[in-house]
Nucleic acid binder design. Structure first.
Length: 816
RNA sequence: GCCGGUGUGGCGGAAUUGGCAGACGCAAGGGACUUAAAAUCCCUCGCUGGAAACAGCGUACCGGUUCGAGCCCGGUCACCGGCACCA
């Protein structure tokens, strides 16, 4: 047999699959459906990364297996092409982002096809195409019309000299990265999507989907729901003002010894003229505004703040007057921006109280508050009507009820998740189709005029004034108001990178529809994504965003299911050969193209799945790639061992091995244990080579099992043996291509050997291994075990206390 | 600090979830073929002692439960990921 020439063979089969259209999903097919989804790539200039290969190869194997099992499979691909890297590359090279994107998509498509993935290339989506982003804009406007998209002022890092908004990274040490002048916190108008309104729905939805536990936990933590109470503290020195706070610990209300407001709290400005030390407070606020998030978290231990002169709070439960402080350990963005401080039972309040010499009153027994705050549970003390109660069991409820009854507060819920800041001052994104009219106010582009096209211009560099590049294009900015027909201006910011990817899985179902984002009957046919695989880095971004959009679309009747993804898994990273994360700067990046050129697509696909546990990170090893290369070559070489080509059943020598391997590979693929599935096939091929013969029935099964992993070599051998023609003659689909030949089945009864080897222990220590009939019973096994020489020697002179037989595994004789 | 995860040969990793630790692959060493190299094939390969049969030890560390623990329980250490003054 000639050596296996993967180069010509792989290309040949990729062309044949495409010509036969074997991977095209069929709408409304009678077969059961399977929708497998992988995260579509951002088509960067660097081309594909081996990480993409690992991410895609997992569901590729599942999808190929499903087709062989008779499913109508939708396994699509597309491109998430809006984004900053493309725009920056375009600015650097003088090319247009459109041109860069088209080039990169062509490159990615070519690379993906060379790996032989069974994507349905007739359903490709590109988020930057007009007939795609038309619907991204449509969804945004639906949210706008339902009050979920809104503008609000918020605090951002701002350089007054450069007139730009800066990220935290660009304003370290409170200095502008560009001009080194002091950065201030400034409130600025920003577009938000009201994702917080969906926080509970996103949380509840997790109960009806099958996500890996760590994915589920991360989402729950990200949403960060807490239950507690809002309490209103009357403020002395004001006109009937109350300071509203949120607490998860209403049980500790009797322990309040001071209050804290965030530096940005509005009450400070409202009563500025009654505050005796406003200068000191202003100075403190300025200090805080200069601090970056980074500095704030670095200084966790050192509590700072200023006491407000002239305002005090009254604890509503006991009428006690307590001081109010301004301190930056309280954030404006969570709860009400003010807290009640209970130093005895909160470490942060404790640190602050120690710093400022404030009283610490214990209300829960169990700790030593002279040393640190006690955050555990216990019996209530110093708490009047709560005394003697268990804080957790009774007093939280009792206090909440009491507050409610007296009208001093009420139960409440808070989330860590914030609303989604949705606009970017950049060119390469979906234009936000909002119009500002002096007469009519804020309105939007009519639905039937979508898409609002991104103007094709030469100059798309961002301005120095923090304005979007689109603001510099009068033909874009100036428009007529759709309501009154008068002159109006367009919103010039664009949507963030995460917009287009929040609904792309719906577009695959009906990619060319110009009446709706997708046809409802097709949406109902395909239903949820059955299995979605991607990276952990998207669990708290893309996964949250897209679940939010999908749930909104469900609520307005645009999609038939609440949750988009029935099942979500994640692959582990591929590290560089040095064990570090792959990065250009470290020079440890492996290019999948090089691997395809040198070893072939089958080897690449097999290796990324064989290299380790699919869900864990593993370093790349060139040497190990060669091991997979040998395996593929040996598969091709099986033809030399073919003896009884027309055999219809497995040979006696290999029968149980084949049944066992069919079972193992079938089950392991479902459990994403690709590494052990491949190992089982390697074990089997070693056994075949030892046996020096394989019959036709066995070779067929071997090729079927390996096909999802290494489809090119399998199709090639299948065809070379003439089974393609044979299958076609028997009416098999798509001209007898292995890709659609039915998946093999196994017979549980034939998975067992006639004799098995079991271990014999004496008092838990292995003494020998004996061969026994597979169907032996306990008495028989014990008898044979005791008859063994070594075992008998070990038992010599001892009394047997206990005898155990674990079926098919071992015998343990406990003796003294 | 909080949440989640991991720790097994020289390396990547297996181990039917309490039942023969180290499957499979790599690397290494020895041999065959070859003028030679590559490729291929055969043998060895957890550690210690021994020529060998064999014996002892061994799944991060300490302890426990059990006839039996990589797996379960209690404690400790290390590393990775996420969140982080969230009241």
């Amino acid at each position: 047999m000639k050596a296996y020439d993967f180069k010509s063979v792989e290309k040949k089969w990729q062309d044949k699959w495409e010509d036969a259209g074997v991977f095209h999903a069929v709408d409304f097919s009678e077969k059961p459906k399977f929708y497998g989804l992988v995260e579509f790539p951002y088509p960067s200039g660097a081309g594909m990364h081996v990480g993409h290969i690992k991410a895609y190869s997992g569901l590729e194997v599942v999808s190929r297996k499903r087709r062989m099992q008779g499913y109508n499979v939708l396994f699509p691909i597309g491109f998430d092409a809006y984004g900053l890297p493309t725009e920056n590359y375009a600015i650097k090279t003088g090319m247009h982002p459109r041109q860069v994107t088209d080039q990169n998509i062509a490159k990615f498509s070519d690379q993906l096809k060379k790996v032989g993935y069974s994507f349905d290339w007739t359903r490709v989506v590109d988020t930057t195409e007009e007939d795609y982003y038309k619907w991204t804009q449509w969804i945004f406007l639906q949210m706008f019309d339902h009050g979920l998209a809104f503008r609000d002022k918020t605090l951002v890092n701002y350089c007054p000299s450069c007139k730009v908004v800066l990220s935290n990274e660009d304003s370290q040490g409170g200095k502008c990265d560009i001009c080194h002048s002091d950065v201030v916190q400034k409130s600025k108008d920003v577009w938000y999507l009201r994702i917080t309104e969906y926080a509970d729905k996103l949380l509840e939805g997790l109960d009806e989907v099958d996500y890996l536990p760590n994915i589920r936990t991360q989402q729950i933590n990200w949403i960060g729901k807490s239950t507690g109470a809002f309490v209103n503290f009357p403020v002395k020195g004001t006109d009937d003002e109350t300071l509203r706070i949120y607490t998860t610990r209403p049980d500790t209300l009797f322990g309040v010894t001071f209050m804290v407001m965030a530096p940005e709290h509005p009450m400070i400005d409202k009563y500025a003229d009654r505050i005796g030390n406003m200068d000191a407070i202003e100075a403190y606020r300025k200090e805080c505004a200069k601090k970056t998030e980074f500095e704030r978290t670095q200084l966790v231990k050192d509590k700072t703040g200023v006491k407000i002169d002239g305002l005090t709070a009254v604890n509503p439960v006991n009428g006690k007057e307590v001081p109010i402080f301004v301190a930056d350990y309280v954030m404006m963005g969570y709860g009400t921006g003010a807290i009640m401080a209970v130093p005895a039972h909160d470490q942060r309040d404790y640190d602050f109280a120690k710093e400022f010499g404030i009283d610490i009153i214990e209300v829960i027994k169990g700790g030593d508050i002279s040393k640190e705050a006690y955050t555990g549970d216990g019996e209530m003390v110093n708490s009047e009507f709560l005394n003697g109660l268990d804080n957790k069991k009774d007093s939280i409820e009792k206090m909440a009820a009491w507050l409610q009854e007296k009208g001093l507060g009420e139960k409440g819920v808070q989330f860590k998740m914030k609303d989604w800041a949705f606009n970017r001052q950049r060119y390469w994104g979906e234009p936000i189709p909002i119009i500002y009219c002096d007469k009519c106010g804020m309105t939007h582009v009519p639905y039937d005029e979508l898409p609002l096209k991104l103007p094709k211009v030469e100059n798309f560099e961002p301005g120095t004034d923090g304005e979007s590049p689109l603001a510099k294009i009068p033909e874009f900015v100036n428009c007529t108001c759709p309501k009154c027909g008068g002159p109006a201006r367009r919103e010039t910011d664009t949507m963030p990178q995460w917009a287009g990817s929040s609904w792309y899985f719906l577009r695959y179902i009906d990619p060319h529809n110009d009446k709706a984002l997708a046809d409802m009957d097709k949406l109902k046919y395909w239903g949820q994504v059955d299995w979605y695989n991607g990276g952990m880095e998207h669990v708290t971004r893309h996964m949250i965003y897209s679940r939010f959009w999908h749930r909104f679309l469900y609520d307005i009747g645009a999609v038939p299911t609440k949750e988009p993804y029935a099942k979500r898994t994640a692959q582990g990273l591929i590290l560089g050969p040095d064990g570090d994360k792959m990065s250009k700067s470290k020079g440890n990046v492996v290019d999948p193209n090089d691997v395809v050129d040198e070893f072939g697509a089958d080897v690449l696909r097999t290796y990324v799945l064989f290299m380790g546990d699919y869900e864990k990170a593993a370093p790349w090893s060139e040497a190990s790639v060669k091991g997979c290369k040998r395996f593929i070559d040996r598969t091709y070489g099986l033809q030399d061992l073919l003896t009884d080509k027309d055999a219809t059943d497995y040979s006696a020598e290999l029968s149980s091995s084949f049944h066992k391997t069919v079972k193992k590979v079938s089950e392991d693929i479902e459990a994403m244990k690709f590494n052990t599935a491949i190992a089982a096939l390697m074990t089997l091929i070693n056994q075949i080579y030892d046996n020096k013969a394989i019959n036709g029935a066995e070779l067929k099964t071997f090729l079927q099992l390996l096909n999802p992993f290494a489809p090119h070599v399998c199709e090639e051998v299948w065809e070379a043996q003439g089974w393609k023609a044979e299958a076609a003659a028997n009416g098999a689909e798509a001209d007898g291509l292995l890709a659609l030949i039915p998946w093999p089945t196994w017979d549980e009864a034939k998975c067992v050997d006639e004799t098995i080897e079991i271990a014999v222990q004496v008092s838990g220590k292995i003494k020998n291994r004996i061969h026994v009939p597979a169907d032996i019973d306990e008495a028989g096994a014990l008898e044979l075990a005791k008859a063994d020489e070594k075992v008998a020697a070990a038992l010599e002179g001892k009394t047997i206390i206990k005898e155990l037989y674990v079926k098919g595994r071992l015998v343990n004789i406990v003796a003294k």
